[in-house]
Nucleic acid binder design. Structure first.
Lengths: 210, 210
DNA sequence: GGTTGTGAACCACTTCACAGCC
DNA sequence: GGCTGTGAAGTGGTTCACAACC
């Protein structure tokens, strides 16, 4: 295939494919065709084949894809073959929930550090992680931690992001309702739960009966 | 302007504009020009003008937009002028965090009901909300609740979604790692935190030094 | 003079459709 | 025969650029 820039949209879908393949694998499925796979994800089958084709030819014409093999390939493409250490900043309600969230493990993520600015929380242990003072964020550089989750109030997020960048973090998952400005080499993915919720009413047909 | 179907992408950005306008309003700003507004959000200024133009002409040539007026217009477009009651299904770690999350209020959302299948949780009170048995989901129909948040394990999500649809819910914010199939009249927005995190390593330049 | 609102141009992603292969 | 991989066509969102307006 000729060279093509790989769309961000494609990268966004690959983890979804991975999630579904895991499910198929657990169900004992050996093979899957792009058509059936697409149906279960609610996308077009050509979309899946095209997405995969950016990275090589993983299937067999007339047969389909081997579930386990494709699973490994996707992990490799997404650089999920090794365990990734993650730092959590902000141990409030949301941060605490994230600390005990089991869903990260399946993609090889492990929260190994937690930070907060509240003296009452610093030093406490949650899910085997000791909460450290945010002034210690610079130590991440020497601890092999490249990813961070921001779960602090909007007012503090920009400052935290700056410190994370200085500490050599290359990827940030941001839950603060704030637009973060970072150098190009750092990737930020922002999730604002309230904003996602705020999109729903628009689509809701106004019904006259209550 | 001629008729145009309004892109989903536009609807996705409007709450972001709303969030930023709130900030500007709090700072006492009276007016904002699309150029400055765009810069603060990291988007193109024509994008903002085009997004708004789908709904009417809200600005003044040569001057810009009145912050408070635009704020009201956006609330109106997004149907956020009234309080929206929300039901939460799944009172685990994430669900509990969502119950005490203060960010929903600014868009007029209020979690007024919570459901779980765990007998130990049913009947308990959290954030002034009594946890009910999931078998009571059908009562939502008569309680004026049109939106729901799913925060249950993937294995239970499909079943819960079906029950929510039957109970007249028109919008779902889904945190379960599962593709939900619902009638067209129901809008689902899915957030899978682990999947968003799983996109980060791909973008991370592999550095040789640890 | 400066900014909005918007048709037109542009660009990028999606879908089609079929050659190639099993 | 059936499905993959992919160039080509289609589609839709983004950006340009400027007329209209304050």
């Amino acid at each position: 295939m000729k060279y093509h820039r790989i769309p961000d949209e494609t990268i966004g879908r690959l983890p979804l494919y991975l999630r579904e393949l895991r499910l198929l694998s657990q169900q004992g499925r050996q093979n899957i065709k792009s058509g059936e796979f697409a149906d279960s994800l609610g996308v077009n089958s050509a979309q899946i084949r095209k997405d995969l084709s950016y990275f090589g030819a993983f299937g067999t014409p007339g047969v389909g894809y081997k579930v386990k093999k494709l699973l490994r390939q996707l992990c490799s493409i997404l650089k999920l073959k090794n365990i990734h250490k993650v730092a959590l900043v902000g141990v409030g309600n949301l941060g605490s929930a994230l600390l005990s969230y089991s869903g990260f493990a399946q993609f090889g993520f492990e929260i190994v550090a937690a930070f907060d600015s509240d003296p009452n929380k610093i030093g406490s242990i949650r899910n085997n992680v000791t909460v450290e003072d945010t002034s210690k964020l610079s130590t991440l550089k020497n601890r092999g931690i490249k990813f961070a989750i921001i779960a602090v109030p909007a007012s503090a997020a920009k400052e935290i992001a700056d410190q994370l960048v200085k500490a050599g973090i290359t990827g940030i998952l941001n839950f603060a309702p704030s637009c973060l400005v970072v150098p190009k080499k750092v990737k930020v993915i922002s999730i604002d739960i309230a904003i996602d919720l705020a999109r729903l009413p628009y689509y809701s047909r106004v019904t006259l009966n209550k």
